[in-house]
Design a protein around this nucleic acid. Structure first.
Length: 490
RNA sequence: GGCGCGGUAGCCAAGUGGUAAGGCAGCUGUCUGCAAAACAGCAAUUCGGCGGUUCAAAUCCGCCCCGCGCCUCCA
């Protein structure tokens, strides 16, 4: 079954056919680093991480570019708040400090969420000469004009304006909520270059010192690293208009190559109490705060439990559900690890082969869910069906080590496509546990031996007490036909 | 005013014509010294409402109700 993608440009589910046979160029709109990364950002970047991972799983080589808007009004504003005003400090340096601080923080939380790094993270400030060249080109072609506060793109000159967001200029209530700049030829015209006010960071340009407008960087940097036409461009749904619409206008106006981008993908919002989580409403939760309560993998599972285009409502109760669900996945692996150590090799080759065939069914079901516009919710359902199969399989009398290893391999494989680590987090927990509480593996094993002796002597009061004491220290004991299994739960 | 998303069990959520995945919570049973985990079973006779098309509709069409988003910086 071929991969199908909901293309926001055509508003259709389309078969995915990249421009080059086996390589995919993907550009994702990145952050403006002026504040902590929040759950809404996480949803966007986890979504595109899944798209990238699944494309790679499907055999494509993916070139993933994600920009960092390291200069803009919000960063300037923040630099003035964070640094007490000082005439001696270079505004560019002040802005860079803000951008670097929050960029570092962004990478830290994304790494914890197991989001794969893009191939390149181009920064706006490092592409100023290219942007100036583009703006000059647009001026030469008659798509741009200069006012006393900047250079603007003239929307009326670009006949396809609105093709992504399905907006007609005349239908919009221009100035409904934001005052229209009377000097602009049309309220929809947008800045390509903004002239600097005193004290603002500025770069020289043929039109005057200033900084780039918001949209130009994405056109310039995406085409620089992916070519004048490429496969996928994505970001949050809130970027569709005006940001992506404007990007299309200026790019296609300049290059004349249509379509600039073949597939447009937008992820839905995270909401709180059914309202959009956003900086402007102030109802956002930073990932760092969420991680104080929930493991990053739990957050990831939570984000993937809804299709990427649907709204996703955030609440602690929902995350708590995801935590339980994630625990069930971990439990299955723990269980397999335990049994793999205890169970002998297969006697008959035949049984192993049968298991392989059965496992393939789950892989195929998983793939067909993912092929359907990256239906992670469906794919997770399939993973749980596999877990169910494994838990059932494990109870059979004739289980052998080889088929248990096959079970584990597939479970890990599918979770890995979704970026869900099952074992590593567990290891991290153990490290943390040992360093914080100081109960070593050997000490736990010793307690278990003591308890086993007590059970043999039918001293259940003692054995239960040992189990209780360990539980207070986060060690869970479970008795199985193969002996007592233990695990740590932070 | 324009454009768009959604309404499926107590909660979350897949499913776009063939008779309701999965997760969480709950109940019953099996297993266990007791637990835990797991497994088995129960739980929506039904998919916001009303009509229509069809042998067949959560899925297609029409109308209506409700929640939300974009049109402004935003992932």
């Amino acid at each position: 079954m071929p991969l199908k993608i909901n293309n926001n440009l055509t508003r259709r589910i389309e078969e995915f056919v990249p421009i080059k046979t086996s390589e995919v160029g993907m550009y994702v709109c990145g952050i403006t680093p002026y504040d902590e990364t929040h759950l809404g950002h996480a949803r966007a970047y986890v979504t595109f991480d899944i798209i990238r991972r699944y494309l790679e799983y499907s055999g494509y080589k993916v070139r993933h570019i994600q920009n960092i808007t390291d200069i803009d009004d919000k960063i300037i504003k923040k630099s003035e708040i964070l640094n007490p005003k000082s005439e001696n400090t270079d505004p560019k340096v002040k802005c860079r400090e803000v951008a670097e601080r929050f960029t570092d923080s962004f990478f830290e939380v994304m790494d914890r969420m197991n989001v794969k790094r893009a191939d390149i993270y181009p920064k706006a400030t490092e592409h100023i000469p290219e942007m100036i060249k583009w703006i000059g080109g647009l001026m030469d072609k008659g798509f741009a004009y200069k006012l006393d506060d900047g250079v603007y793109f003239e929307v009326a000159k670009f006949k396809d304006y609105g093709k992504l967001s399905r907006r007609k200029t005349e239908d919009q209530q221009a100035g409904a909520r934001v005052e229209v700049d009377a000097k602009k030829k049309d309220p929809l015209d947008f800045a390509l270059w903004k002239f600097a006010k005193p004290g603002e960071p500025a770069w020289e340009s043929p039109w005057g010192a200033g900084r780039p407008g918001w949209h130009i960087e994405c056109s310039v940097m995406s085409t620089k690293y992916l070519g004048e036409q490429f496969d996928i461009h994505g970001g949050g749904l809130d970027l569709q208009f005006p940001h992506h619409e404007n990007e299309i206008s200026q790019t296609e106006a300049l290059t004349g190559k249509v379509p600039w981008v073949k597939y447009w993908i937008h992820n839905g919002f995270v909401t709180i109490n059914q309202q959009k989580m956003s900086k402007s409403l102030g109802n956002f939760f930073s990932l760092k705060d969420i991680f104080k309560k929930f493991d990053p993998m739990v957050v990831r599972l939570f984000l993937l439990s809804t299709h990427y285009r649907s709204p996703l409502n955030f609440s602690d109760a929902q995350l708590a559900e995801s935590k339980e669900a994630y625990g069930k996945l971990q439990k299955a692996v723990e269980n397999l690890n335990f049994l793999i150590l205890k169970v002998p090799e297969a006697e008959a080759e035949v049984e192993v082969l049968e298991t392989d065939d059965e496992l393939d069914v789950y892989r195929e079901k998983f793939r067909s869910a993912m092929d359907d516009d990256f239906n992670t919710a469906g794919a997770i359902g399939m993973i749980f069906e596999l877990v169910h199969f494994i838990n059932d399989h494990v109870k059979e009398e004739k289980i052998d080590k080889g088929s248990l290893e096959d079970d584990k391999r597939l479970l890990i494989e599918l979770c890995e496509v979704l970026g869900l680590r099952l074992e590593l987090t567990q290891d991290k927990k153990m490290d943390r546990y040992v360093s914080e509480v100081g109960l070593s593996n050997d000490e736990v094993e010793m307690q278990i031996k003591k308890r086993e002796a007590a059970r043999t002597n039918k001293d259940f009061a003692l054995s239960d007490r040992i189990r209780e004491d360990l539980k207070k220290n986060g060690i869970i004991l479970e008795d199985t036909p193969f002996g007592t299994k233990w695990s740590r739960h932070a």
